[in-house]
């Protein structure tokens, strides 16, 4: 079987879900004839027509709100943000209206908001963002951020079928750089379950999205140069978070670091560390360490972007410190 890219996996999930369920429709800027800024929706207009593949005006709050209303009426809208950076324009709709609708009004709001996220692409401060932490603090939303093509497909299918709103972050650096043989059949990956990306026994790296690949690189290097056996836990779902998997890896290796591409303060790593503190403190042999971006807007020029974002060498440095503690 031919290998499938991360991008193509997402397209397949959209295609299959639209085939399976007539209430699924997609909307966003330039997603129809143009096929989307990254061509994720290429071909969907031809297959499903203009009523189910809707080009929107540049009105993120407007079309997220409209998706919510359609979802109340039994539709399953999937919204594309041209870049995830523009999700902030719909922050009010998502956090005030969408996230609270089930709790406050017993109105289901099964929408998916997806879009290209993340840096390492010289995109500058407004085409590189990782906004997951801004929404992690909002009960009522679910958040997933896959690292592999298989998870991208399976989690998107799960997100579309989920009865609650799901933010689906796609890493644009991974779009065309990774590929794999996808499982056949109706491949659905449950939301809320982490994945062990590499088994190990000396220390654990908890991470998600593009930095899973950085962590894998670091793990190879640490094994070769230091003889360290590194376990990598890919969270995949940030909300809900898989506490059981986190505790399990802590109990296994007793040394943990958390790596993410997003900035440090108020980031996902802090939340992971707090959960470990509460649920597995006695299993720790060392403090929990973080590798993250520095707390600045992501700059554009290569030397600056490389300096701000977490790199493989950082993971190696911190892992050595952790192992020696």
């Amino acid at each position: 079987m031919a290998e499938t890219t991360y991008l193509e996996a997402i397209r397949q999930a959209l295609f299959e879900e639209m085939e399976r369920d007539e209430s699924v429709f997609i909307l966003g800027e330039d997603i129809g004839a143009y096929g989307g800024a990254f061509k994720v929706t290429d071909g969907l207009l031809d297959r499903f027509g203009e009523s189910r593949v809707i080009d929107t005006p540049i009105s993120e709050a407007g079309f997220v709100g409209a998706a919510a209303g359609a979802a109340h009426m039994g539709m399953r809208p999937v919204v594309e943000m041209q870049f995830i950076d523009f999700i902030s324009c719909a922050y009010d709709m998502l956090t005030n209206y969408v996230a609270t609708s089930r709790y406050r009004a017993m109105l289901p709001c099964p929408i998916v908001v997806r879009g290209p996220s993340g840096g390492y692409v010289r995109g500058g401060p407004f085409h590189s963002q990782n906004p997951e932490a801004a929404f992690l603090h909002t009960p009522g939303l679910k958040i997933v951020y896959p690292a592999t093509a298989s998870d991208a497909k399976g989690l998107l299918k799960a997100a579309i079928r989920d009865d609650d709103p799901v933010l689906f972050f796609e890493h644009k650096y991974l779009y065309r750089r990774i590929k794999e043989d996808l499982p056949g059949g109706d491949h659905v990956v449950p939301i809320g379950k982490a994945r062990v990306a590499r088994e190990g026994k000396d220390l654990s790296i908890i991470t998600y999205a593009a930095t899973v690949w950085k962590a894998l690189e670091a793990a190879e290097q640490l094994e070769k140069e230091d003889g360290l056996s590194v376990e990598i836990l890919d969270l995949r779902s940030l909300l809900p978070m898989d506490d059981a998997a986190i505790v399990e890896t802590v109990r296994k290796t007793n040394r943990v670091m958390v790596v993410h591409e997003d900035t440090r303060t108020g980031g996902v790593a802090g939340e992971v560390a707090a959960r470990i503190n509460e649920q597995a403190f006695e299993w720790l042999d060392a403090p929990i360490l973080r590798v993250t971006a520095a707390d600045v807007p992501l700059p554009y020029s290569p030397p600056l972007e490389d300096y701000v974002l977490p790199q493989t060498t950082d993971i190696v440095t911190v892992a050595r410190k952790l192992a020696a503690y």
Binding site: Y120, Y173, L174, R177, I178, K179, W213, E217, R264, V291, T292, A294, P302, P303, D306, Y307, V308, L309, Q311, T312, T313, D314, T317, V318, K321
Partner: peptide, 21 residues
């Protein structure tokens, strides 16, 4: 960040696209 103390440039080699995936 503490692990970057004294580090002038973040990366010995820039992101290694070829290694990913």
């Amino acid at each position: 960040l503490w692990y970057r103390a004294g580090v002038r440039s973040a990366v010995a080699a820039h992101e290694r696209a070829a290694g990913w995936g």
